Amino acid sequence: MNKKFSTTQFVWGVSLFLALFVNLPIIFLQLPRLEKSGIAQLDVLIQVLVCFFYSVFFIQIVYNHSKSSHSKTKIFFEIFIIFIVFVFVLTTLNVLIIGLSMKMFPTVLMRGILIGLIAYFFCRFLIETERKNEILLENEHLKSENLLVQLSSLKNQLNPHFLFNSLNTLSWLINEDKGKSQRYLQKLSQVLRYSLSMQEHSLVPLKEELTLIDSYIFLLQMRFGENLKVVKNIENIPLQIPPLSLQLLIENAIKHNIISTESPLHIWIESNESDKTITVRNTINLKQNSGGTGIGLVNLNERFKILANREIEIEQNEAFIVILPLISY
């Protein structure tokens, strides 16, 4: 409805402009008599109204046929008919009502041709503008679909990595301590349930992600004990984050660094409300051949580029630091 309404407004506006434009000489000639002569007022009114309706019908014919598969011959025939009707009606009104002679017939023809030419080009402009808008909308739709496909692919690449490492940890605990393995399995099921439930979500509240991290840290500390120290300093910020983002960073720290009594691993998770970011920082004591593929951080960065139009920040000096942008609702 809005599109039709705006198109109608455009057609009427163009038609009124054309009607006034082609009749400017007549309006100027009649201007001195407009206040005193009713015939002069009627003359101007008739010229403008007839030209206005002629322009409206002309544009509608060209515009409507552009949306259909009608032949050019049919369009030309209908334009010719509306032109003949315009000339006949305006000439008749000029002679019978205004009292003009047939000598005005050529001016009627010229006005009809001029209106037709200008109206045609205005109409083509309207058609091309609509086509460009349709192409832009289609491109935006395809872009959105492509982003969703990319996002789904990236999420699916993260989850098998998480599951593989979790099962390895469970297998190790079963051999080490069956009592602990039961508690571990309970927490692991909570983490996996969260992971599965988040498959259809691109973003989750930060609070939910932190609940996952609490369970995940519990699992890790059952294995590493005092050799793994995690400190959280998180403000209650009503923002969102891609699911499993923090879990991935903690997992990477575990994967690449030595964790022992002599070299405990420290991880700090801190939020910054003013910058709307969350920072994960860990000490560095790399394992041998722990370079890895880097696909985890690359995929995580791609997710943030798609969802937040921002990239993650990575710094490495005395500690390894990853800064994640948080996303508003």
Score class of each variant (00 low, 15 high):
F83Q: 05
F218R: 05
K178P: 06
E200K: 15
I269K: 02
V191E: 00
G294C: 03
P243W: 06
K72Q: 12
L249M: 08
E313K: 09
I217G: 04
I237Y: 07
L126S: 15
F58H: 11
L212F: 13
P264Y: 15
T73C: 07
F105S: 03
N309C: 06
F164E: 05
L45T: 13
K232Y: 01
V230E: 01
L151R: 01
E311T: 13
N156R: 12
F77E: 09
L228G: 00
L114Q: 10
F5M: 10
K143P: 04
K207Q: 12
E209V: 01
V85F: 15
G99N: 01
E138T: 10
N236F: 09
I314V: 13
V87N: 14
T129V: 12
S101C: 04
V22W: 00
Q157E: 08
D275H: 10
I97P: 04
L167Y: 07
K143T: 10
M1R: 05
W268K: 10
R303H: 05
N165R: 09
N159H: 11
I113D: 05
G116I: 01
F122G: 00
K229R: 13
N252D: 09
G294R: 07
Q30A: 09
G292L: 12
I115S: 00
M198G: 05
K276R: 14
